[in-house]
Amino acid sequence: MTMTGSVHQLSRSKRLPAKVRGLILVRDQGLLMLWIAIVILFAYLAAPYFFTVATGIAMLNSASIASIYAAGLAVGVMTGVFDLSVPGTAALAGVVTALLLRAGVPVWAAILAGLLIGVLVGIVNALIVIKGFDPLIVTIAMLSVLSGTSLILAGGNNVSGLQGLTFMGTQTYLWIPAPVYIALALFLVLTVFLKTTRAGMRLLAVGGNAEAARRVGIPVSRYRVLGFSISALCAALGGIVTSAYVTTASPGASVSIVFDGMTAVALAGIPFIGGRGSLPRVALGAIVVATISTGLLLTGVQTYWSSIATGVLLVGGLALNMWTSRTATNLLLTGDTGKRAVE
C-alpha cells in the first residue's frame, strides 16, 4: 500500500482510528489533564490553603502577566520568529510610560506611547531581519540596545510611584485583578485575529512555510513585519502591566520573562518551526507554571524546586508533543491503528 493511497483512503473514512484519536486527545488536552493533576496534588499537599477561590484568583493574576509575554512569544513562534528582544522591549515600554507619567503626561497618552515603542521596536526588528539577517542575532542585539537605552533613560534606577497605573495593576473588578482582564482581552483578540481573519491565517502560512507563501502571492515581508510588531506590542503591554502591578518601572531587562514565556509556549505544544499553535493553550501553559510556583510556595517547599519543576515540564512538554505527533503519523502511514483503518 502506498502512502498516498493510505492517506487518500483515510480521508474518505468518517473517523480517525481510535489510537490516533487518543494521541490527538493527549496532544490537545494533555496540558489540561496535567494541570488538573497538579491542582489535585497541591490541593492535598498544601491543604487547606491551596484549593480556595482566593488562591485561585491570586494564581490567575500571577499567570496573567506571564501569559501576556507568552502571547507575544507565541505569536512570534507561530509566525516563524523567535523574538528574544521581548525583555528589553518590556523594560523600555515600562520606563517610557513611567517617565511620561512623571512628566505629567495624561495616563492614556503615556500608555499609548509605551505601546507605540513596542510597535516601533517590532518594525525595526523586522526591517533588519527581512534584509537577510538572522532573527535570533538581530533580536539579541535589540535586547542589548533596548536594555541600555532604558537604563540610560531611567538613570540606572527604578522609576517608582506610578499610582496612576493602579487601575491596570492591583485594582480588582468583581474580585478579579485587572491584569487578568487585560490578558483575557489580549488572548481573545489575538485568537480571533489568527483564526478568523485573512491576515491572521496568512501570518500563520508565512510562519509555516515562507517560500510556499511567497509562491502563492502572499507578501511575506509585510507579514514578517506584522508578526514582529504583534510580538513586540505584547512585550510592551506586558512591561506596562508589570509596571502598573508594582507601581514601579524597572529599567533592568528581566531575561526570565523569555524563559517563563517560552515554557508556556512549549507546554502549549507549539512547534518551534512555526505555522500552527493554540493561544488558549499558551494561556493554560502559563497557568500551569503559576500553579506549580504557588503550590510549592504554600507547601513550604524550597522555591528552587519550582525552577527544577519548570525545566522538567519544559522538556516533558516538548517530548510529549514530539511523541504524539510522530506516533500518530507512523500509525497513519503504516496502518497499524489497532483496527483496520483502511479496509
Binding site: 498544601a46 490553603y49 480556595t52 482566593a54 488562591t55 491570586a58 494564581m59 493574576n61 500571577s62 502577566i65 527604578n158 508589570t242 502591578y245 508594582v246 514601579t248 524597572s250 528581566s254 504557588t294 510556595l297 504554600l298 513550604g300 524550597q302 522555591t303 528552587y304
Partner: peptide
C-alpha cells in the same frame, strides 16, 4: 511563610499568595 524573590513583581505576587494562606 517564607519566600525567595529576586524582583519586585515576584515578591509582590508571593506575598499576596502567602497572605491568602
Amino acid at each position: 511563610g517564607t519566600a525567595v524573590a529576586s524582583d519586585l513583581a515576584s515578591a509582590q505576587t508571593k506575598v499576596s499568595q502567602l497572605l491568602i494562606a
